[in-house]
Simulated scan of single mutants.
Amino acid sequence: MRKTLLNALLLPLFTGVAFTVHAIPPSKATTPHSFSSPSHEQTINLNTASAEILQRELSGIGKAKAEAIIAYRDANGGFQTVDELLEVKGVGSALVERNKNRLTAP
């Protein structure tokens, strides 16, 4: 009796919930990559970008590396080439290659 009464009360509740889910219109839907991936729309200038921009826009650059890039830039008068990033402690050739197409250094 108790089981039948419980089913009679809960079944309509759960059935109603199943039909309240709404789809996101295609124009407002997001791709899985849109939440945390870089924008890939602009080139980043190593001599003018802030640490926040370096972190957000470049792959493999966290707070410590972004701050090291800024410190190197300040101490050495800026970058002459993108490959000069290899002089920054903690930045290796794989990291430079992965981001090279997004970077400029006049």
Score class of each variant (00 low, 15 high):
residue 61 I to S: 03
residue 48 T to F: 03
residue 67 E to S: 12
residue 68 A to E: 05
residue 86 L to D: 05
residue 30 T to H: 13
residue 20 T to N: 03
residue 31 T to K: 13
residue 92 G to E: 03
residue 47 N to P: 00
residue 26 P to L: 07
residue 35 F to H: 15
residue 95 L to G: 06
residue 94 A to M: 06
residue 34 S to I: 03
residue 58 L to C: 01
residue 7 N to K: 10
residue 23 A to I: 08
residue 10 L to G: 05
residue 81 T to I: 01
residue 89 K to Q: 15
residue 80 Q to T: 12
residue 2 R to A: 10
residue 73 R to F: 10
residue 34 S to V: 10
residue 24 I to Q: 08
residue 34 S to D: 09
residue 21 V to W: 13
residue 16 G to H: 06
residue 62 G to Q: 02
residue 2 R to M: 13
residue 102 R to V: 07
residue 8 A to H: 05
residue 93 S to T: 14
residue 71 A to L: 06
residue 56 R to I: 04
residue 7 N to A: 14
residue 21 V to P: 06
residue 84 E to M: 04
residue 53 I to Q: 13
residue 81 T to G: 01
residue 95 L to S: 07
residue 43 T to H: 10
residue 47 N to H: 02
residue 50 S to V: 05
residue 92 G to V: 02
residue 21 V to A: 12
residue 85 L to M: 05
residue 38 P to E: 05
residue 79 F to G: 03
residue 94 A to W: 01
residue 9 L to W: 14
residue 76 N to C: 05
residue 103 L to D: 00
residue 83 D to A: 09
residue 102 R to L: 11
residue 31 T to N: 11
residue 84 E to L: 01
residue 9 L to E: 09
residue 13 L to H: 02
residue 11 L to S: 13
residue 73 R to P: 09
residue 43 T to S: 11
residue 70 I to M: 06
residue 67 E to P: 02
residue 78 G to D: 08
residue 104 T to D: 11
residue 2 R to V: 08
residue 67 E to F: 04
residue 2 R to W: 07
residue 28 K to Q: 15
residue 30 T to M: 15
residue 50 S to A: 06
residue 30 T to P: 05
residue 103 L to E: 04
residue 27 S to Q: 12
residue 99 N to F: 06
residue 30 T to L: 13
residue 11 L to A: 13
residue 65 K to V: 11
residue 101 N to S: 14
residue 34 S to N: 04
residue 55 Q to C: 05
residue 105 A to G: 00
residue 13 L to T: 09
residue 11 L to D: 12
residue 61 I to F: 11
residue 90 G to M: 00
residue 6 L to K: 11
residue 23 A to P: 08
residue 47 N to S: 01
residue 61 I to L: 11
residue 94 A to Q: 12
residue 64 A to E: 14
residue 94 A to D: 09
residue 30 T to V: 12
residue 33 H to N: 07
residue 45 N to G: 00
residue 15 T to L: 10
residue 1 M to I: 12
residue 92 G to R: 05
residue 63 K to D: 13
residue 82 V to Q: 08
residue 70 I to E: 03
